[in-house]
């Protein structure tokens, strides 16, 4: 996997600081699973967190805190529930995204967007982002759309191209609100990608707009 489009510095730093919302974090963490280079950059971002922690004005602790902790050092923590059985085959979708989907690609319940494109909405515990998996047939465009805010698109299989470049497996596109673009899957294969937005996507075609309220997109 040759990744050309990585996590931007501001996103990676927000993720490391713990202030990135869950929706964006799914795309960031999934890219991290696919990209050793960004994992090295994350280590540096967490060093900054360590430096800020060191520089924090200390706050007086309860005099009994150390004794309470020491008394608990031999405690065995409750065992975590066992992880779901690992599939015999190597999954295509890495964790954490696989956990959100409840399995690998074959577990995805697609809903049609028209013209052969389909999507699967992913629920999170916050409402500032919308997260979905999109499947675009080979050679076909994503229904034309614009977005009010940021859009992160992570390619999981196949590839797409738009005005800004070509995006293959593992690549992360970071588009801001000014963009009205029409990504198109490359002709060789269907493109499956994770798309995260902070405002509802506005699809330009009237057909799609008509069904938007029904599909909840």
């Amino acid at each position: 996997m040759t990744i050309r489009h990585h996590i931007s510095d501001d996103l990676l730093l927000s993720y490391a600081m713990g202030s990135l919302a869950e929706g964006w974090s799914i795309a960031v963490a999934t890219h991290l699973a696919l990209c050793p280079d960004c994992r090295r950059r994350l280590v540096e971002a967490e060093e900054i967190g360590g430096g800020l922690l060191e520089g924090t004005q200390p706050q007086a602790i309860e005099p009994s805190s150390w004794e309470s902790v020491r008394a608990r050092l031999s405690e065995r923590p409750a065992e975590k529930a066992g992880r779901a059985a690992v599939q015999a085959e190597k999954p295509i979708i890495p964790r954490p995204l696989r956990d959100y989907l409840g399995g690998d690609l074959e577990a995805v319940k697609w809903r049609s967007l028209g013209k052969g494109a389909s999507q699967c909405l992913i629920r999170t515990g916050e409402n500032t982002t919308q997260v979905r998996l999109l499947k675009i047939p080979a050679g076909k465009p994503v229904p034309e759309h614009s977005h009010g805010g940021r859009e992160l698109t992570l390619v999981l299989s196949g590839a797409f191209e738009d005005e800004t470049g070509r995006f293959g497996p593992g690549d992360l596109e970071d588009a801001d609100g000014s963009v009205t673009h029409q990504p198109r899957a490359t002709p060789d294969a269907d493109c499956i990608c994770l798309a995260v937005t902070d405002a509802p996507l506005r699809f330009s075609s009237w057909v799609v707009r008509l069904v938007q309220p029904i599909l909840g997109i």
Partner: peptide, 9 residues
Amino acid sequence: FDPSDPALV
């Protein structure tokens, strides 16, 4: 990400 995930690069 999970360092022991078989899908991890």
